[in-house]
Design a protein around this nucleic acid. Structure first.
Length: 466
RNA sequence: GGCGCCAUAGCCAAGUGGUAAGGCGAAGGUCUGCAAAACCUUUAUUCCUCGGUUCAAGUCCGAGUGGCGCCUCCA
């Protein structure tokens, strides 16, 4: 499998440190609000990565943190007249709800910054001892000039970086130095440290949690491309100065979700929450949208785009339902085999995934399978071998499962008995050419998310939300 | 000032130097009591522009135009 590594700016073959346990760290959310649609992107694409690695037979240890102490959380707590813990607890819950909706598997470990402050303090102590960091009025700063490779991830030279830098503390030794520890202001949550009361800087959190839960060197570190600088650059600096070894082999960065071609962000205020969109269109279409472009490309969010994705998903659901219908009603011992022609497509799907997770290509392969099989199904008089139908169904479920779509449950609001009696009633009406009544029953069922289609082989009852 | 990304049909979107995947939408047709679903046909002689390399360029090189991101918090 080839992955684009930001560190080398090339697609590289993925070679794990230890096949028995691939170590992935994904930067998680700062929990001060509902996640926005941009946050959904790394969740979805790196969940696909995880699925695919496991599909290939690797064991994966997947760690995603919660940044649960930060200025924004403190501010929100102040606004709501409550404490930071109430805010972070609340939005961790909401995060989990949205994640579940998006069919994101729960990480093996979800460490919280505030639960790992001891590790951070230990690292900072050592960095001070090694003169990679210094104390300044209760703050601790990382001395960037002591790390020769600073800039290796972002491709930046330190001299050039200084050009555009904006900083709040002018008394730092160097403009590039960043905070490892921040002295606390009055009435703010704080932890005691050798440098007085305070709280950790953002970058050290991730370094500490990576070290504690995954070790000194990890396979994959993932996040949005806006994290390349300074966040990930700083993580490398801290961790490599502390561990004296390479921090991470492959850095993966997803592209942004834009709105009107502008980056969607909480600071710009042009963001849409996952919750809001899911209330209108459902969660699944958000996930579909995320895999419909390559993970490194930008996505421009629009309702037109969402609606197009909804229709595509509908086509896939119809396909699956029609196959299940064919299995029940159109299979016979001497039936046509439909799976052989489609077996090669699985290889094409895997080729696409192996090529830096080319999910749009992988989706195209799925639609090619759908097309091929639909041509078989469109032959009205044909019957099919049940085994081959099962093969296709299994393959379809397998591929779609890697992408993490098609997970919506059938939702039946009416009980089965009632549905069956309505169906019988409709059949009688149809025999008597009482079209009005037949259509009325069809509408009633439709209102309950049950779609019925009259086919040559009988009535195809589809029970999913449209 | 530096680093980087992007430009392919009405929309979304792949594309490894070998003659433009796939999805949505639209139009017409088949099937159907009507639908639905599905199938068939049509929908980019051309990939922002201009040069260059090559037998061959959407793909490589150069210049230009337009858009975006990072260097403050960000996914």
């Amino acid at each position: 499998m080839f992955l684009y590594n930001t560190l080398t700016r090339k697609k590289e073959e993925f070679i794990p440190i230890d096949k028995e346990e691939i170590k992935i760290y994904v930067c998680g959310p700062t929990v001060y609000d509902y996640i926005h649609i941009g946050n959904a992107r790394p969740l979805c694409v790196f969940d696909v990565l995880r699925n695919y690695l496991e599909y290939m037979g690797y064991n994966v240890k997947f760690v995603q943190n919660f940044t649960d102490i930060d200025d924004k959380i403190i501010n929100r707590a102040k606004e709501e007249n409550t404490d930071y813990l109430t805010v972070s607890e609340r939005f961790i819950k909401e995060f989990k709800k949205d994640s579940k909706g998006l069919n994101i598997r729960v990480a093996n470990i979800n460490p919280r910054a505030t639960e790992n402050i001891e590790t951070m303090i230990a690292i900072i102590k050592e960095l001070i001892k090694k003169e990679h960091a210094y104390i300044l009025d209760g703050d601790v700063y990382f001395r960037v000039k002591t790390f020769k490779n600073y800039g290796k991830l972002s491709g930046q030279k330190t001299e050039e970086l200084e050009f555009g830098i904006k900083t709040e503390n002018q008394s730092k030794e160097d403009l590039l130095d960043f905070a490892l520890w921040k002295a606390s202001k009055e009435n703010e949550p704080s932890w005691s440290s050798p440098w007085g009361k305070g709280r950790p800087g953002w970058h050290i959190e991730c370094s500490a949690m990576v070290l504690k839960f995954l070790g000194k060197t990890i396979d994959l570190h993932c996040g949005g491309r806006d994290l390349i600088f300074p966040h990930h650059e700083n993580e490398i600096a801290q961790s490599e100065c502390y561990n004296r070894t390479k921090f991470c082999n492959y850095w993966l960065h997803n592209g942004h979700v834009n709105i009107d071609n502008m980056k969607m962000s909480k600071s710009l205020g042009n963001f849409l929450t996952v919750r809001k969109i899911s209330e209108k269109y459902g969660y699944e279409v958000i996930r579909y949208l995320m895999i419909s472009s390559h993970y490194r490309s930008p996505i421009n969010f629009s309702t037109e785009n969402i609606k197009s994705c909804l229709n595509s998903l509908k086509k896939l659901y119809n396909f699956k339902e029609n196959l299940i219908f064919a299995r029940k009603n159109r299979s016979s011992e001497n039936g046509k085999s439909i799976s052989e022609e489609v077996e090669n497509y699985k290889i094409l799907f895997l080729d696409a995934m192996n090529d830096d997770l080319n999910t749009p290509e992988a989706l195209a392969v799925i639609f090619k399978i759908v097309k091929k099989i639909n041509i078989f199904l469109s032959e009205e008089d044909a019957t099919f071998s049940m085994e081959s139908v099962d093969n296709v169904l299994n393959m379809f479920n397998e591929l779609v499962g890697i992408l993490g779509i098609m997970y919506k449950d059938q939702k039946i609001k009416l009980d089965e008995k009632k549905v069956n009696s309505l169906l019988k009633e409709r059949e009688i009406a149809r025999k008597n050419k009482n079209w009005e009544k037949a259509d009325e029953i069809r509408n009633v069922l439709k209102e309950n998310n049950i779609t019925i289609e009259d086919t040559a082989q009988g009535v195809n009852v589809k029970m999913f939300e449209n």
